[in-house]
Simulated scan of single mutants.
Amino acid sequence: MASRPVRRADAQRNYDRLLAAAETVLDADGAGASLDDIAKAAGVGNATLYRHFPTRGKLIEAIYDQRIRLLCEAAENRVTARDPGKALIDWLREVVVHLTESRVLAEAFMAAQPGPPGVEPPQIAAWHKAVDNAAAPLLAAAQADGAIRPGLDATDLMALTTAVARAGSPEQADAFLDLLLEGITPRQGN
């Protein structure tokens, strides 16, 4: 994840407003949403938008980076929970929501990236690694508590969770996650 530069207070407010407006506009209008509409929704001029985000790709990357950062912080905040199994499961539900709500954003990010089609940009690999690293302590705590079967590593868990979130419709994701959780949770008496 990219490090956050230090900004003046007014510049940080504009940056935050642009990110919030961009999420809303992109979610409503899709990957081709107008950058002018985003600036207008944020209450800033086009020059302010382009000063912070010189390209559509940089804007989308910043939004996604923020979402990943918040997801990783949520995992970190749960590591010392009294019920490690519940902490992991609650976080996995948050991951599924993130993935189902970020479909348009992820597609827009990929479309805005230069390079050969079908090849993941390095930033996506960095985000995957950050999420895997965030999941590892939660998973280890849940396994140590006996809430999750041993032998599963964070990378495999996140791959399964991602597959669950992307299979079928977003409405089905929660039911699919329940099936996954049933498979990784030890049964009583085993």
Rank of each mutant, 00 (worst) to 15 (best):
L181P: 02
L19A: 05
L179T: 11
I38W: 04
L99H: 12
W127I: 06
L49D: 11
A147Q: 09
A173I: 01
G183F: 07
D178K: 15
A140N: 11
A175Y: 00
L179N: 11
E94N: 12
I60G: 06
V95Y: 02
K40W: 04
A125W: 01
E76H: 12
A39P: 07
I148L: 06
E76W: 05
E76F: 04
D145T: 03
D29S: 14
P121W: 04
P121I: 03
T162L: 08
Q188E: 09
A81E: 06
G168S: 08
P84M: 03
P54N: 05
A159L: 06
I60M: 05
I38D: 10
C72L: 01
L18G: 07
G43W: 05
P84R: 03
G118M: 03
L92T: 02
T161F: 01
T48F: 03
A39W: 07
A135L: 08
G168P: 14
G146F: 06
Y50H: 15
G151P: 01
N133E: 14
D90A: 09
A74Q: 10
A22G: 11
P137G: 05
A42V: 11
E73H: 13
D174G: 12
V104S: 07
T161Q: 03
A154E: 04
A112I: 05
A81C: 02
A136R: 11
I124D: 00
D65K: 08
D83M: 03
D145Q: 12
E23V: 07
D10A: 15
A134L: 03
D16F: 02
C72M: 03
Q66M: 08
T155I: 10
A130H: 10
D83F: 03
L160N: 11
A112M: 04
R82P: 00
P84S: 03
A31K: 12
I184N: 08
Q123P: 12
A9P: 15
G189A: 10
R13Q: 14
E23Y: 00
A62F: 09
T162C: 07
Q143H: 11
L49G: 11
R7V: 03
V97M: 07
H128Q: 13
H52I: 09
V44I: 09
A163Q: 06
L88F: 00
A147W: 05
R166L: 15
A175V: 09
D90Y: 01
L19T: 08
R93N: 10
R103V: 14
R187L: 04
E171S: 15
A135C: 13
A154N: 02
F109T: 01
D153M: 05
K86T: 13
P121H: 15
A167N: 07
I38R: 02
M110K: 14
R67I: 00
D29K: 15
T48M: 13
A142N: 05
A87D: 04
K129E: 10
E120I: 08
A159S: 03
R69Q: 13
P117C: 00
M158A: 08
D37N: 12
A165E: 01
D90C: 02
A175C: 00
Q12P: 00
A167T: 13
E73W: 10
Y64S: 10
A142P: 00
Q66F: 00
V97C: 04
P54D: 07
W127F: 13
A134E: 00
L18W: 13
R166Q: 15
S102L: 05
E120V: 05
P5A: 11
A126M: 09
E101H: 12
